[in-house]
Design a protein around this nucleic acid. Structure first.
Lengths: 194, 194
DNA sequence: ACCTGAACACCGTTCAAGT
DNA sequence: ACCTGAACACCGTTCAAGT
């Protein structure tokens, strides 16, 4: 008579998926493992999500929002160079703290799994403002792309274990950030303050 | 009486796997699809390869060698700035020409799937020489890491479709390469020629 | 309204049996 | 020495049946 009460929730399912992602990579995020973790049978998941790609998309969306929140305080720095330094550090810290989630963002996602682009757009806009303060309006998009390409490339190589020649990886990161700030500043078309 | 003749080869299997990778991503590289393509049943593949991770590793190894060959001519440039320009262009062209293979290189590979590191080491050594000519010995490792991080980050974001704000992506790449060359040159500890 | 077991088409992998 | 069909344990997903 009484309809069956909900025994889980979309949020719990997404959280379980993300935990499995960090523990065992994307392959470990099976519908059955997720179902086990939230205490339900696999077919029940299809009441809350269309399919596995939709689950992956939901995880990616959460991650993107969280990364945006982690980066946002960097934009309050007065000096654009400091903004870049803080952003870079926070970006890298996020990737180290959630490597599985971070890598998911740059996995070629199936079309169905593309996360909502709002958080993305907001972060892009914030970064563009910093870039403009650094190099001027004309080159701001190019500068923003250089900065994001570097940041993503560096942490992604770190996570993939691609820095195999020893040395101080933290120092290499700091050196690179300073080189980028200097290089971009030197190309600025902003009129100097007077 | 006569033992069964070989109906395929390890090379044919690896080539089939790579073709499937480009056509449909890593998920499309199933043992059955590979077997179909080389004209054999799936269990026969296990005569030449331990398992699917070994197949993926073999593909990655081939790709890495090919990338090394594509990059090598860049190191003949007299000017280290030119070497960086040529390397960057060739690196990007390789990724555009074989996006599936390229992305495979930076997928978190299972330990079993780590390609032989020789080709890797040779390319690293070549790049270090260029970096040293650009910034001096002390900072050469840091500089090499900045350059590879940028190059990988840029093309990987391109392939993931992460540059969604329009603009001229080619121009952004050229701008970034010039900014890096200038920034690194400015930090050089090499004594000026004279 | 949600949950479940049973079923389907697919994986990777093993292995005994064939030539 | 290599190839094969059959089998096993696993996937994702659908659906009729239960409450």
């Amino acid at each position: 008579m009484s309809p069956a009460p909900a025994r889980t929730s979309r949020e719990a399912i997404v959280a379980a998926g993300r935990a499995l992602l960090e523990e065992g990579g994307l392959d470990a995020v099976t519908m059955q493992a997720v179902a086990d973790r939230v205490g339900v049978r696999a077919p029940s998941l299809y009441k809350r999500l269309d399919d596995r790609p939709a689950l992956i998309a939901a995880i990616a969306g959460d991650v993107l929002e969280e990364l945006g929140r982690a980066l946002h305080p960097a934009f309050e720095a007065d000096d654009p160079g400091d903004a870049v330094r803080i952003m870079a550090d926070r970006y890298r810290a996020f990737a180290h703290g959630s490597p599985g989630a971070y890598q998911l963002l740059f996995t070629r996602l199936l079309p169905a799994a593309q996360p909502a682009a709002e958080a993305n757009a907001r972060a892009s806009a914030d970064l563009l403002v910093v870039a403009e303060r650094l190099v001027g309006r004309e080159r701001s998009l190019e500068a923003a792309r250089l900065l994001t390409a570097f940041a993503h490339g560096f942490v992604s190589m770190e996570l993939a274990g691609a820095f195999r020649l020893g040395g101080d990886v933290d120092a290499a990161f700091r050196f690179a950030v300073e080189t980028l700030i200097e290089g971009l500043t030197a190309r600025s078309t902003n009129s100097p303050p007077g």
